[in-house]
Design a protein around this nucleic acid. Structure first.
Lengths: 233, 233
DNA sequence: TGGGCAAGTGACAGCTTTGTGACAAGCGTG
DNA sequence: CACGCTTGTCACAAAGCTGTCACTTGCCCA
């Protein structure tokens, strides 16, 4: 049985420079993350406690409370739950090794960095974290089999070739077996769309999915006026 | 007969820097491991003999007895029972491949690393060891033969000349037969890249691999939008 | 029974991803 | 030092996926 709910990772960005903060925030949001921001250490600690972000991006050069201090506190507070990336200026980069070891950061980037690189690293870290708990590997229902790690779907033993989107759509539906998923919800979970405008996209993909699944298309149910649903019979 | 109680894995950490040693020790203990520490090669060898740790974390930069020497001795002494991770500095990282191959390490990490990552790798290795599977030494599928320990590949009886990178790529794919491997994953496992940016490298190597494998290239499957996969048919 | 609307369908242009050939840098060898 | 081999990157070509549109079909309810 599938349990993994798809959520937008929550990221806390801590930087005292408004410009940098805004830039990072914009880029992360564009990539589908929920972003919280803090301009100083105190706010950062408070937000970290109340929101339990999945990842924290921390600038080491902070006013008031020292960035290093914040870093240590964060590490101690929630050693197991959060990922941490520290940002250091190029000047401080020589101390990399020391920092990396002492702070217990999961990654660190040197300023200035390209937004693209930052987003990549964030994704990498999050993926690595979520990798181990992906225990769900296989869904089997009647003559339909969905094998997540192999990216394989088969009907009556014959493997069906699905595109990445089709596969994701089917997986999402199958994981919420029985529950109707609205088009908006599907657009959000499969496509990472924020505000869906043309909702016919889902319909088209459902059609393609049904076509490829052949007999097993009977699992895909249309609920008029609401959305789609994965049914058992 | 006595039933062996499930024990906390015993880990020996060898590093001449007290700070690093302490940090690693702390993190491993937090994760539920029994930790032994040694600051030099001699102590390491002695502890390894008397305690038979499940895993050894060895810094290659050791005073007195060379880390490499220690590594070799450890490997010879208890080749089958222990797992070994070597830690090398970023500077030496270029030699990664050579080291990994020659020393017979089960994994290696480059300093500096995040404690979290280290713990993850340790857990991974221990889990893999305890799992009975994956001692794949030889893959034979139709006209394709891959001999892992001998570093040999042949198609229809004729041996194929692969470069080190090509061989490793093929091995990684073959050992995870059927499972799709993302480019990021391959970059991590084959190239030891942490943050992959230009992902076309994998593609190019896949092309060369396919070219050299000729008919047997049919085993290498592209999953668009996801990665590559070793298939059986 | 017919109007209104939701969903299904087929086509297609644009775009993203992958394949391919070329090239230059790096490295070890003779 | 020149040579050959390996490797990562680039530019371009090919493949094939995707979202949208126009149109059709079918459902619901007055």
């Amino acid at each position: 049985m599938l349990t993994k709910a798809r959520v937008r990772p929550k990221i806390l960005v801590v930087d005292d420079e408004p410009d940098a903060l805004e830039l990072i925030e914009f880029n992360l949001k564009s990539s589908g993350f929920d972003v919280l921001t803090a301009a100083d250490g105190e706010a950062a600690l408070s937000l970290a406690r109340t929101h339990a972000p999945d990842l924290i991006l921390l600038d080491l050069m902070l006013p008031e409370v020292d960035g290093l201090e914040v870093c240590k506190i964060l590490r101690r507070d929630s050693a197991t739950s959060n990922l941490l990336i520290v940002m250091v200026t190029a000047k401080a980069a020589e101390m990399d090794r020391v920092l990396g070891l002492e702070l217990g950061a999961d990654d660190y980037v040197t300023k200035p960095f390209s937004p693209r690189e930052l987003v990549l690293r964030v994704k990498n870290l999050l993926r690595r974290r979520s990798a181990p708990d992906e225990k769900v590997e296989r869904v089997q229902l009647g003559d339909l089999t969905i094998d997540l790690p192999r990216h394989l779907v088969s009907v009556q033993g014959k493997s069906v070739d699905l595109t990445a989107t089709e596969f994701k759509l089917l997986s999402v539906l199958a994981q919420r077996r029985g529950r109707v998923q609205s088009r908006e919800r599907l657009l959000h979970d499969v496509w990472n769309y924020e505000n869906a405008i043309d909702t016919r996209t889902v319909d088209t993909h459902m059609r393609r999915l049904r076509e490829k699944l052949g007999k097993a298309a009977r699992f895909l149910d249309t609920v008029r006026g609401v959305g789609y649903r994965f049914v058992e019979a």
